[in-house]
Design a protein around this nucleic acid. Sequence first.
DNA 1: TAGCTATACTTGAGTTCGCAAGGATCATAG
DNA 2: CTATGATCCTTGCGAACTCAAGTATAGCTA
Lengths: 141, 141
Amino acid sequence: MRFLRAHAALTRELSSRLEALHELTLSDFDVLVQLYYAEGRRMRRIDLARSVLLTASGITRLLDGLEAGGYVAKERCDSDARVTYAVLTKAGVRKIEDARESHLADIEELFGSQFTREEREQLGELLGRLPLAHTAEACSE
Amino acid sequence: MRFLRAHAALTRELSSRLEALHELTLSDFDVLVQLYYAEGRRMRRIDLARSVLLTASGITRLLDGLEAGGYVAKERCDSDARVTYAVLTKAGVRKIEDARESHLADIEELFGSQFTREEREQLGELLGRLPLAHTAEACSE
DNA sequence: TAGCTATACTTGAGTTCGCAAGGATCATAG
DNA sequence: CTATGATCCTTGCGAACTCAAGTATAGCTA
């Protein structure tokens, strides 16, 4: 119960702040961050989907938006015509670097401030044990 | 990050199991549980909304569904004509008692099995500190 | 009593997703 | 070379929600 409530409250707040300041969804942000840390700042759409726990169709539509905004571009794969890469554009890099700052501050305010460093690590470890929660790539957000 | 991923993975799984077995959303279940433990098994719709962290309109539509299924009924309030109560029907009581069992088993499997009793308590305590997460009423689910 | 503001609820429009189905491409096995 | 099955992606449809606006009622104030 606490878990569900905490999530609902937290994401609602973070999401609305992100939206207000940067016109980004939490999912949008999530995708941009994944791309930002990816090799060559690009990823296969399917891997992107798995890493942010969306379905393939979810990613298609989400990227539609980011492509329209000019933050991400499509790129064909030479070795496999089925796959399309999502690449962060320069505007996308600027966007994420810009949004990161306020978003991290928000997280710190709402989330981090409640815990000591030690507790934070423990919380992370505990949550990391949950099944299926292992998709998150290296990244310390 | 872990928090978001863990939530996405967990709710997706729990939700689909609940849906498959009982044709209930996680939110539906949540609402039924709240009513089940409420005094007289009824609540003002607005209080219900706050306790499950939905908006007023969200509750209206969710209850539309549960009313259509015969699990909850509307009831007028004598002292204040603005408010409507949501009351659990007998069918609703049966439904929730039925669904509870498998749902708790699912939770135990996916969530509880990863932790010792002590860790579980600690996790609960940590999550409970998050701002806005205090709406959950007494109930040990 | 008349007016103002706050509260409870509903409804219309729009968003973000998931699922199922379909098209295209690859890889493998005869 | 062809058939089969898997993989990547998109699209139609529907579900769950939110926000904004509207209605009705309550309560307070002058």
